[in-house]
Design a protein around this nucleic acid. Structure first.
Length: 258
DNA sequence: ATGTCTCAGGGACTGAGA
């Protein structure tokens, strides 16, 4: 089973890229972030024609998440219970049926703008609520996968220039502590289960030729619960879509489970 | 060199968010 996460930065603009990529990679489950579409404008017909069941939670202009699955989707839920939020950042669904089913959570963690701002405080509060909820979800099932744009680079190896980024949003110590808090629940960062190339990133700023110069961060992650992590065979970043004309600023991440 | 991209509002361009 192939799981993927991709911040598409507008599903309307990136739909041709996504449809080509689904054919090329044939993922079984895809978590999308920053769809930036109201549910009524979600390209259901195109994605169902491509072979995917769809669950989405979107809004106009900002945020928006979706889960695509070749296997039937059930028990769709949106948002973090006990955290009131107008922003559409979380959707969960069960993919598949019976004992092989997995619970999938797709998350678009707040960006945080800059350390010290209100948006940064919102990010930390959001992450605290997210952690509480994931703890409860793991108590129900360890066949849990939590995919998304975390907007956190967990360690020095995930940043092109750790000294320049030290203390900055996406790499500040409180954010990294929040990420470690998720791992302490028993979730594994699937990318780090394997030896990886140095300077592996999932996001590059559009400005300053960030991608060409590989000035990136690894902020998109696939976390796996205790029952799924031992089944993970590979985890890779696919930079292919980032090389295309009019790319998203993020590349997709893929994990393959037995 | 805030050096790009996307979206909304309004109907060209500016501001917000990332």
């Amino acid at each position: 089973m192939k799981l993927a996460s991709w911040n598409v930065n507008s599903l309307k603009v990136r739909l041709p890229h996504l449809l080509d990529w689904l054919v090329a990679q044939t993922p079984d489950v895809v978590c999308l972030q920053e769809t930036k579409l109201e549910d009524a404008k979600f390209p259901l017909v195109e994605l169902e024609s491509a072979g995917y069941h769809c669950a989405r939670s979107g809004q106009k202009a900002y945020n928006g998440v979706a889960i695509l699955s070749r296997l039937p989707l059930s028990d769709v839920a949106t948002g973090i219970p006990a955290f009131t939020d107008e922003q559409k950042r979380v959707i969960a669904a069960t993919c598949g049926e019976g004992s092989s089913a997995i619970r999938v959570i797709c998350a678009y963690v707040p960006n945080g703008q800059a350390v010290g701002t209100e948006k940064y405080e919102y990010k930390l509060k959001w992450l605290a609520a997210f952690r509480m909820w994931l703890g409860a979800e793991l108590a129900k099932s360890r066949r849990l996968a939590v995919l998304g744009d975390y907007n956190i680079a967990p360690a020095d190896a995930d940043v092109h220039d750790p000294k320049r980024w030290e203390g900055q949003v996406l790499f500040s110590e409180p954010e990294r502590a929040a990420f470690r808090g998720l791992l302490e629940l028993g979730l594994k960062d699937s990318f780090r289960l394997f030896t990886q190339p140095e300077r592996s990133f999932t996001w590059w700023d559009y400005r300053m030729n960030g991608f060409k110069r590989n000035l990136g961060l690894r902020i998109d992650h696939i976390l796996l619960g205790g029952e799924l992590a031992p089944l993970c065979r590979t985890c890779i970043i696919d930079p292919g879509p980032r090389r295309l004309v009019r790319p998203s600023d993020h590349a997709p991440v893929l994990a393959e489970l037995d």
